[in-house]
């Protein structure tokens, strides 16, 4: 199931221009970010705690309104403000953010991704059901579809959330610390999944803490320290002295 083929991936560009996010006059989360990236890549957001990764993620998914109040700048997707095409951007928050008291099955979680198309009251059409089935199959979750989401392992839950993003027909998947709390095998599987998604034409953006696995997981990196320290190919970015200083890398 292709997202964007290589002919179109250049048109599917995420552009961040002069983005600054402030929570108050005294607390500035990020200043003056400028970068652009197309589909088919895997971008790591790197930086210490408090560097602005979560604030950037929230601005990218629309949870923090850009260009409102103390916030400035633009986030454009396919040349238009991001707010015009929110269904093409999928947000996968940290694993512990969902409410386990809601007895959702895996299928019901994946079906959430169809909300932009069915709204609140419309029944799911056969097309919607097919999209949900395909997403479950792609993530190898078809046998777990009727299981309760809180019965699944961390890795399986992440796959369910990615299936939701696929059912949503999202081009961009933005993940907040997806490898946290996963065992070694689940981490390996998720990294492989991120590669598969980018090969299929999705843009995968993820905050990341483990510097040992940056090279194998991502092809692009954005290093933050409340401002943009570096952006570009992972290999080039990680060689820069100021990046090493920022991330505390000792040669």
């Amino acid at each position: 199931m292709e997202c964007c083929n290589h002919n179109h991936s250049g048109e599917h560009e995420l552009v961040v221009k002069n983005l600054s996010v402030s929570y108050s006059a005294q607390v500035k989360a990020i200043s003056n970010l400028n970068f652009s990236i197309t589909c088919g890549h895997r971008l790591a957001l790197l930086g210490a705690n408090g560097a602005g990764k979560s604030s950037l993620i929230k601005a990218l998914v629309g949870l923090i309104p850009v260009n409102k109040g103390l916030n400035q700048g633009e986030v454009l997707w396919r040349g238009e403000p991001l707010t015009k095409s929110t269904q093409e951007i999928a947000y996968l928050p940290q694993l512990d953010k969902h409410q386990t008291a809601v007895p959702f099955s895996v299928r019901e979680v994946v079906a959430m991704g169809r909300y932009p198309y069915v709204g609140n009251t419309r029944n799911y059409s056969q097309h919607d059901k097919d999209e949900i089935d395909q997403a479950l199959e792609l993530m190898n979750l078809q046998n777990l579809a009727k299981r309760q989401i809180d019965e699944l392992s961390g890795g399986q839950v992440q796959r369910a959330f990615i299936a939701r993003a696929i059912a949503q027909k999202a081009h961009v998947l933005i993940l907040d610390e997806p490898l946290n709390g996963l065992d070694v095998e689940s981490r390996r599987q998720l990294i492989e999944l991120m590669h598969t998604l980018s090969y299929r034409g999705h843009l995968v953006i993820s905050s990341h803490h483990d510097l040992r696995t940056v090279h194998e997981t991502f092809d692009k990196a954005l290093v933050l320290n409340k401002e943009q320290v570096a952006f570009g190919d992972v290999a080039e970015v990680m060689k820069q002295e100021e990046v090493k200083q920022c991330l505390g890398i000792i040669d």
């Binding site: 947000y91 809601v102 959430m112 991704g113």
Partner: peptide, 16 residues
Amino acid sequence: ILMVLFESEVAKTLGV
């Protein structure tokens, strides 16, 4: 209502 209960931030990004 259920989406807001389950994951309010994701619900917001989906247009709820």
